[in-house]
């Protein structure tokens, strides 16, 4: 499978700057940060959040799409992670470990949404601050249809498709985030991609993204 395009340069960068520039982090390295978190240091907590909140938000939003409950789910990730920080033995793995917590939380959120409890997919028609340059009707429709198709896929397929193709994660990163082997991650990504396009063909806003060979059946 080809290397992914990394879609990491995102609009959350400004959030990172705003947060970290307001106060200089006092726990610069991960070991000290993890140790301080285990001790319940509130300053470490803020440092930890400032460093990783944008990354967590990016992963969540790309799996779930724009969602009214995103802020709550984002909060849940940090609460869950904090409650199990003592199980983190290798401080250098802090970031991938936190991302895996985020992926797991998103997955749980999808399952809960499938039970019809909480998720209200944000109506794109009601989004007030959609930046003008990218807010054409066609582009909004394409995004909405992508998440429509993803919602119809099995949860694991939805997660890996979003991580691989929307977030641009490497396969090994996906494997780590999902807690599966590299081979399983590869299989899941291929399966998710095929299932996605099988459904996506029916949506005119998505069909135009298909290469000609794929349109002809080479998926």
């Amino acid at each position: 499978m080809s290397p992914p395009t990394v879609n990491r340069s995102n609009r959350f960068a400004h959030a990172r700057v705003r947060l970290v520039s307001s106060e200089r982090p006092r726990h610069a390295d991960d070991s000290a940060l993890v140790e301080a978190l285990k001790q319940g240091d509130p300053v470490a907590l803020a440092d930890w959040y400032d460093r990783f909140a944008p990354d967590v938000l990016r992963v969540l939003s790309r799996i779930l799409g724009p969602d009214l409950d995103l802020a709550d789910i984002h909060h849940d990730v940090f609460v869950r992670a904090l409650s199990s920080i003592r199980t983190l033995n290798d401080p250098s793995a802090l970031r991938p470990w936190l991302i895996s917590v985020a992926v797991h939380t998103a997955r749980t959120a999808i399952l809960r949404r499938n039970r019809g409890r909480w998720l209200r997919f944000l109506s794109f028609g009601l989004v007030p601050d959609m930046p003008a340059p990218v807010a054409t009707r066609e582009s909004v429709e394409a995004v909405r249809d992508v998440y429509r198709v993803l919602r119809a896929l099995p949860t694991d397929d939805r997660v890996v498709f979003a991580l691989r193709f929307i977030d641009g994660m490497e396969l090994q990163e996906i494997a780590d985030a999902c807690g599966v082997s590299l081979a399983t991650a590869k299989r899941r990504v291929a399966r998710a991609r095929d299932r996605f396009w099988t459904r996506a063909r029916r949506y005119p806003a998505l069909a135009e993204w298909l290469d000609e060979e794929v349109r002809d059946g080479d998926s």
Binding site: F12, R62, P66, V134, S139, V143, V146, F165, G168, V214
Partner: peptide
């Protein structure tokens, strides 16, 4: 196709979120 579409979706979602 997936990567191109994914890149587009990432931009849109980031802008919204």
């Amino acid at each position: 196709s997936s990567r191109n579409l994914g890149k587009h979706v990432a931009q849109q979602v980031d802008a919204l979120v």
